[in-house]
Protein backbone atom coordinates (compact mmCIF):
# COMPACT_ATOMS: atom_id res chain seq x y z
CA UNK A 1 0.00 0.00 0.00
CA UNK A 2 2.17 2.83 -1.17
CA UNK A 3 -0.97 4.94 -0.98
CA UNK A 4 -1.28 5.92 2.64
CA UNK A 5 -4.76 6.92 3.59
CA UNK A 6 -4.74 10.56 4.60
CA UNK A 7 -8.08 10.80 6.38
CA UNK A 8 -10.08 13.95 6.04
CA UNK A 9 -7.34 16.52 6.42
CA UNK A 10 -6.95 18.95 3.52
CA UNK A 11 -3.92 21.22 3.70
CA UNK A 12 -4.69 24.91 3.52
CA UNK A 13 -3.68 28.31 4.86
CA UNK A 14 -7.00 29.81 5.93
CA UNK A 15 -7.53 31.55 9.27
CA UNK A 16 -9.10 28.37 10.58
CA UNK A 17 -6.18 26.22 9.41
CA UNK A 18 -3.69 28.48 11.17
CA UNK A 19 -5.36 28.40 14.60
CA UNK A 20 -3.63 26.33 17.26
CA UNK A 21 -4.92 22.75 17.25
CA UNK A 22 -5.76 22.63 20.93
CA UNK A 23 -7.54 25.99 20.75
CA UNK A 24 -9.63 24.64 17.88
CA UNK A 25 -10.42 21.48 19.82
CA UNK A 26 -11.46 23.53 22.86
CA UNK A 27 -13.64 25.72 20.61
CA UNK A 28 -15.29 22.60 19.24
CA UNK A 29 -16.15 21.38 22.74
CA UNK A 30 -17.52 24.79 23.70
CA UNK A 31 -19.59 24.98 20.52
CA UNK A 32 -20.91 21.46 21.03
CA UNK A 33 -21.99 22.36 24.56
CA UNK A 34 -23.85 25.31 23.07
CA UNK A 35 -25.50 23.18 20.38
CA UNK A 36 -26.65 20.58 22.89
CA UNK A 37 -28.31 23.31 24.96
CA UNK A 38 -30.20 24.79 22.05
CA UNK A 39 -33.93 24.25 22.40
CA UNK A 40 -35.64 26.13 19.57
CA UNK A 41 -35.73 25.96 15.80
CA UNK A 42 -34.53 29.58 15.28
CA UNK A 43 -31.62 28.68 17.56
CA UNK A 44 -30.61 25.88 15.21
CA UNK A 45 -30.94 28.35 12.36
CA UNK A 46 -28.36 30.62 13.99
CA UNK A 47 -26.04 27.66 14.49
CA UNK A 48 -26.43 26.62 10.88
CA UNK A 49 -25.57 30.15 9.71
CA UNK A 50 -22.54 30.19 12.00
CA UNK A 51 -21.37 26.80 10.69
CA UNK A 52 -21.69 27.96 7.09
CA UNK A 53 -19.57 31.02 7.95
CA UNK A 54 -16.92 28.74 9.44
CA UNK A 55 -16.89 26.56 6.33
CA UNK A 56 -16.47 29.62 4.10
CA UNK A 57 -13.70 30.98 6.33
CA UNK A 58 -11.82 27.68 6.16
CA UNK A 59 -12.28 27.47 2.35
CA UNK A 60 -13.70 23.98 2.64
CA UNK A 61 -15.70 22.78 -0.38
CA UNK A 62 -19.33 22.13 0.69
CA UNK A 63 -19.14 18.51 -0.48
CA UNK A 64 -16.31 17.80 1.95
CA UNK A 65 -17.89 19.71 4.80
CA UNK A 66 -21.31 18.08 4.59
CA UNK A 67 -20.35 14.81 2.92
CA UNK A 68 -19.97 12.58 5.94
CA UNK A 69 -23.15 13.94 7.51
CA UNK A 70 -25.10 13.62 4.26
CA UNK A 71 -24.12 9.96 4.00
CA UNK A 72 -26.13 9.35 7.18
CA UNK A 73 -29.43 10.44 5.59
CA UNK A 74 -31.10 7.07 6.22
CA UNK A 75 -30.00 7.14 9.82
CA UNK A 76 -31.47 10.63 10.19
CA UNK A 77 -34.66 9.42 8.55
CA UNK A 78 -35.01 6.59 11.06
CA UNK A 79 -34.33 8.89 14.02
CA UNK A 80 -36.93 11.34 12.75
CA UNK A 81 -39.54 8.61 12.24
CA UNK A 82 -38.89 6.97 15.60
CA UNK A 83 -39.27 10.27 17.42
CA UNK A 84 -42.30 11.24 15.37
CA UNK A 85 -44.08 7.98 16.13
CA UNK A 86 -43.12 7.33 19.74
CA UNK A 87 -42.16 10.56 21.44
CA UNK A 88 -45.29 12.31 22.54
CA UNK A 89 -48.09 9.91 23.40
CA UNK A 90 -50.10 12.60 25.28
CA UNK A 91 -51.54 14.54 22.34
CA UNK A 92 -51.16 12.34 19.28
CA UNK A 93 -52.72 13.18 15.91
CA UNK A 94 -53.88 9.58 15.74
CA UNK A 95 -53.31 6.23 17.41
CA UNK A 96 -52.69 3.04 15.50
CA UNK A 97 -51.25 -0.12 17.11
CA UNK A 98 -48.12 1.13 18.93
CA UNK A 99 -47.71 4.25 16.80
CA UNK A 100 -48.82 7.62 18.03
CA UNK A 101 -47.38 10.38 15.83
CA UNK A 102 -47.61 13.84 17.31
CA UNK A 103 -46.51 17.43 16.78
CA UNK A 104 -44.21 17.18 19.80
CA UNK A 105 -42.63 14.08 18.28
CA UNK A 106 -41.98 15.82 14.98
CA UNK A 107 -40.35 18.80 16.72
CA UNK A 108 -38.30 16.53 18.96
CA UNK A 109 -37.19 14.53 15.92
CA UNK A 110 -36.10 17.66 14.08
CA UNK A 111 -34.19 18.79 17.15
CA UNK A 112 -32.32 15.51 17.49
CA UNK A 113 -31.46 15.42 13.78
CA UNK A 114 -30.36 19.05 13.74
CA UNK A 115 -28.22 18.49 16.82
CA UNK A 116 -26.45 15.39 15.46
CA UNK A 117 -26.05 17.02 12.05
CA UNK A 118 -24.42 20.11 13.56
CA UNK A 119 -22.17 17.99 15.78
CA UNK A 120 -20.97 16.10 12.73
CA UNK A 121 -20.40 19.08 10.48
CA UNK A 122 -18.60 21.07 13.19
CA UNK A 123 -16.25 18.22 14.04
CA UNK A 124 -15.78 17.71 10.32
CA UNK A 125 -14.61 21.31 9.93
CA UNK A 126 -12.05 20.69 12.65
CA UNK A 127 -10.80 17.42 11.12
CA UNK A 128 -10.56 18.85 7.61
CA UNK A 129 -8.61 21.90 8.75
CA UNK A 130 -6.24 20.24 11.23
CA UNK A 131 -3.42 17.81 10.36
CA UNK A 132 -3.63 14.48 12.22
CA UNK A 133 -0.34 15.17 13.99
CA UNK A 134 -1.52 18.58 15.16
CA UNK A 135 -4.66 16.89 16.49
CA UNK A 136 -2.63 14.39 18.47
CA UNK A 137 -0.58 17.21 19.95
CA UNK A 138 -3.74 19.14 20.76
CA UNK A 139 -5.24 16.21 22.62
CA UNK A 140 -2.07 15.66 24.59
CA UNK A 141 -2.00 19.30 25.52
CA UNK A 142 -5.60 19.38 26.66
CA UNK A 143 -5.15 16.20 28.69
CA UNK A 144 -1.89 17.25 30.34
CA UNK A 145 -3.58 18.81 33.43
CA UNK A 146 -4.65 15.26 34.37
CA UNK A 147 -1.05 14.82 35.51
CA UNK A 148 -2.01 16.72 38.67
CA UNK A 149 -4.32 13.90 39.76
CA UNK A 150 -1.75 11.20 39.08
CA UNK A 151 -2.62 10.17 35.52
CA UNK A 152 0.69 9.58 33.70
CA UNK A 153 -0.14 11.81 30.75
CA UNK A 154 3.48 12.13 29.66
CA UNK A 155 3.73 8.34 29.39
CA UNK A 156 0.50 8.35 27.39
CA UNK A 157 1.88 11.13 25.18
CA UNK A 158 5.03 9.08 24.56
CA UNK A 159 2.94 6.03 23.66
CA UNK A 160 0.80 8.04 21.26
CA UNK A 161 3.75 9.60 19.48
CA UNK A 162 5.41 6.19 19.08
CA UNK A 163 2.12 4.82 17.72
CA UNK A 164 1.97 7.58 15.11
CA UNK A 165 5.48 6.73 13.93
CA UNK A 166 4.59 3.07 13.52
CA UNK A 167 1.52 3.64 11.34
CA UNK A 168 3.20 4.06 7.91
CA UNK A 169 5.63 1.20 8.57
CA UNK A 170 2.81 -1.13 9.48
CA UNK A 171 0.79 -0.15 6.43
CA UNK A 172 3.62 -1.25 4.21
CA UNK A 173 4.39 -4.37 6.20
CA UNK A 174 0.77 -5.49 6.28
CA UNK A 175 0.49 -4.98 2.56
CA UNK A 176 3.61 -7.06 1.94
CA UNK A 177 2.29 -9.87 4.12
CA UNK A 178 -1.06 -9.79 2.37
CA UNK A 179 0.62 -10.08 -1.01
CA UNK A 180 3.01 -12.82 0.11
CA UNK A 181 0.15 -14.94 1.44
CA UNK A 182 -2.00 -14.26 -1.63
CA UNK A 183 0.89 -15.50 -3.78
CA UNK A 184 0.88 -18.67 -1.67
CA UNK A 185 -2.79 -19.14 -2.47
CA UNK A 186 -4.42 -17.68 0.66
CA UNK A 187 -8.06 -16.61 0.24
CA UNK A 188 -8.77 -14.83 3.55
CA UNK A 189 -12.44 -15.74 3.30
CA UNK A 190 -14.70 -18.70 3.76
CA UNK A 191 -18.46 -19.14 3.76
CA UNK A 192 -18.40 -21.00 7.10
CA UNK A 193 -18.27 -19.04 10.34
CA UNK A 194 -15.50 -21.03 12.02
CA UNK A 195 -13.48 -21.22 8.85
CA UNK A 196 -13.75 -17.45 8.52
CA UNK A 197 -11.65 -17.06 11.64
CA UNK A 198 -9.05 -19.50 10.34
CA UNK A 199 -8.99 -17.87 6.92
CA UNK A 200 -7.57 -14.60 8.21
CA UNK A 201 -4.88 -16.17 10.40
CA UNK A 202 -2.32 -16.18 7.56
CA UNK A 203 -2.69 -12.40 7.56
CA UNK A 204 -3.16 -11.66 11.25
CA UNK A 205 -0.50 -13.87 12.83
CA UNK A 206 2.39 -12.50 10.73
CA UNK A 207 1.17 -8.92 11.15
CA UNK A 208 1.14 -9.24 14.94
CA UNK A 209 4.44 -11.10 15.01
CA UNK A 210 6.12 -8.44 12.90
CA UNK A 211 4.61 -5.65 14.99
CA UNK A 212 5.58 -7.21 18.31
CA UNK A 213 9.04 -7.90 16.97
CA UNK A 214 9.42 -4.18 16.38
CA UNK A 215 8.02 -3.41 19.82
CA UNK A 216 10.59 -5.78 21.29
CA UNK A 217 13.49 -4.15 19.45
CA UNK A 218 12.41 -0.60 20.23
CA UNK A 219 11.77 -1.24 23.94
CA UNK A 220 15.15 -2.96 24.30
CA UNK A 221 16.84 0.02 22.65
CA UNK A 222 14.98 2.46 24.91
CA UNK A 223 15.85 0.52 28.04
CA UNK A 224 19.47 0.29 26.97
CA UNK A 225 19.52 4.07 26.70
CA UNK A 226 18.10 4.38 30.18
CA UNK A 227 14.51 5.33 29.47
CA UNK A 228 12.24 4.60 32.41
CA UNK A 229 8.50 5.02 32.56
CA UNK A 230 8.54 6.48 36.09
CA UNK A 231 10.79 9.37 35.13
CA UNK A 232 9.45 12.35 33.23
CA UNK A 233 11.66 12.65 30.22
CA UNK A 234 9.05 13.36 27.63
CA UNK A 235 7.63 16.56 29.01
CA UNK A 236 6.73 18.75 26.08
CA UNK A 237 6.75 22.51 25.75
CA UNK A 238 3.70 23.83 23.95
CA UNK A 239 3.70 27.14 22.05
CA UNK A 240 1.61 29.86 23.75
CA UNK A 241 -1.73 30.87 22.23
CA UNK A 242 -1.71 33.77 19.75
CA UNK A 243 -4.23 36.60 19.72
CA UNK A 244 -6.26 34.82 17.03
CA UNK A 245 -6.52 31.71 19.21
CA UNK A 246 -7.80 33.73 22.18
CA UNK A 247 -10.22 35.59 19.96
CA UNK A 248 -11.65 32.37 18.55
CA UNK A 249 -12.06 30.93 22.05
CA UNK A 250 -13.76 34.10 23.27
CA UNK A 251 -16.14 34.19 20.31
CA UNK A 252 -17.15 30.58 20.68
CA UNK A 253 -17.54 30.93 24.43
CA UNK A 254 -19.77 33.98 24.04
CA UNK A 255 -21.97 32.28 21.47
CA UNK A 256 -22.30 29.08 23.47
CA UNK A 257 -22.91 30.97 26.71
CA UNK A 258 -25.73 32.91 25.06
CA UNK A 259 -27.51 29.68 24.14
CA UNK A 260 -26.91 28.02 27.49
CA UNK A 261 -28.27 31.00 29.44
CA UNK A 262 -31.34 31.39 27.22
Amino acid sequence: MKQLPVGLYQPGSSVIHRLDGSAKLLCLFILLAGVVHTASLPGYGIWAAFTVCLIRLAHIPPGTAFGSAARLKWFFGVILLMNLCFYGPEHPWMRWWIFCPSYEGLIQGIHVVARVFLLLVLSNVLMVSTAPLAMTDAMERLLSPLRLIGVPTDLAAMILSVAVQFIPTFFEETDNIRKAQTARGARFDSPKLWEKAKAVLPLLVPVFLAAFQRADELSLAMEARGYRTDRRVWKKKYPPYQAADWLALLLCAALAAAFIII
Binding site: I159, V162, A163, A215, D216, S219, T229
Partner: peptide, 8 residues
Protein backbone atom coordinates in the same frame (compact mmCIF):
# COMPACT_ATOMS: atom_id res chain seq x y z
CA UNK B 1 8.71 0.21 28.94
CA UNK B 2 7.90 -2.83 26.84
CA UNK B 3 4.23 -2.64 27.86
CA UNK B 4 4.17 1.00 26.74
CA UNK B 5 5.67 0.19 23.35
CA UNK B 6 3.38 -2.81 22.86
CA UNK B 7 0.47 -0.47 23.57
CA UNK B 8 1.79 1.95 20.94
Amino acid sequence: VKKSIITA
